[in-house]
């Protein structure tokens, strides 16, 4: 795996809170990197990856603030990073905001589109809420009668010890 793909996976994992394992499991990582290259171009994509690689290390308490400042809050990279989050969660590339296009120039492939039929099916949104993409990965007859199985993740409500007891706010969450 190239350093470029490695950096892309690292960035994607940090933005989505899904592990590299989950992201690779979609089979779409390289295609999504290719989508960035196609839509905003290799140069901007490389700037985004470079900004990620340049972040302070995870154990440094300033990393999240730096990510906000240099990526999500960047005038050039912020909207691209947000489009990447939405892409992972939905399989859809959402057209960049009008203001971005005005400032940095229109990109010919920048329209709202579903990357591929399987990109819709592999959207992380469905997994995040313990559901399934409408029209695919059906959970089976009668499964809907039971509480959802919402996966836990670092920072999820059930990762807190006190959430094990059944509290109305958490009644449906099972790990």
């Amino acid at each position: 795996m190239s350093n470029r793909v490695e950096a892309f996976l690292g960035l994607s994992a940090e933005l989505t809170a899904f592990s590299r394992f989950d992201l690779l499991g979609t089979g779409l990582a390289e295609r999504y990197l290719g989508t960035l290259d196609t839509v905003v171009g290799g140069e901007i994509t490389d700037m985004l990856l470079a900004a990620f690689v340049a972040l302070p290390p995870p154990e440094d308490g300033t990393r999240a603030q730096a990510l906000r400042a240099t990526i999500l809050g960047s005038e050039l990279l912020g909207d691209v990073a947000r489009a990447l989050i939405k892409l992972w969660y939905s399989g859809t590339w959402f057209e960049l905001p009008y203001a971005w296009t005005q400032r940095f120039g229109p990109k010919s492939a920048d329209a709202t589109f579903v990357v591929s039929p399987d990109a819709y099916i592999e959207g992380l949104l469905w997994k995040a809420i313990g559901a399934h993409p409408a029209g695919a990965k059906a959970p089976g007859y009668g499964s809907w009668a039971y509480p959802p199985k919402i996966p836990t993740f670092p920072g999820s409500p059930t990762s807190k010890p006190d959430a094990v007891s059944v509290h109305p706010q958490n009644a449906g969450i099972m790990s």
Binding site: G130, A131, P147, P148, P168, G172
Partner: peptide, 8 residues
């Protein structure tokens, strides 16, 4: 008020 597992 509680998680209902909507979308299933």
């Amino acid at each position: 008020p509680q998680i209902c597992g909507t979308m299933r």
